[in-house]
């Protein structure tokens, strides 16, 4: 079972592992959502959606459905 960005808790960081390029908007990829980059969860909106993330230095808000498509791994592994 893969971990996804949607599983992260507020304040945690992880490394982006993989994703299906077709399921993500190009804009997100260009903002730094690329395998190997660091991602952190800064804040959750009410109902835990959307997510306020720091992705390789870019501060963005994305929806939970998008976050669930980005596989991550914890840094210490």
């Amino acid at each position: 079972m893969y971990l996804t960005l949607a599983d992260l808790a507020v304040g945690e960081t992880a490394i982006i592992d993989s994703f299906d390029v077709e399921q993500l908007p190009m804009k997100l990829i260009e903002m730094g959502c690329l395998p190997g980059n660091k991602v952190g969860l800064i804040q959750l909106a009410p109902s835990k959606d959307p997510l306020y993330i720091n992705i390789s230095g870019s501060h963005l808000a994305i929806r939970r459905e998008t976050a669930a498509r980005i596989h991550i791994r914890k840094q210490d592994e």
Binding site: P25, K27, S58, H59, L60, A61, I62, T66
Partner: peptide, 11 residues
């Protein structure tokens, strides 16, 4: 179609 939502949170 499904909507993409990517919003920058500026300083």
């Amino acid at each position: 179609q499904t909507s993409y939502f990517v919003v920058e949170m500026p300083n």
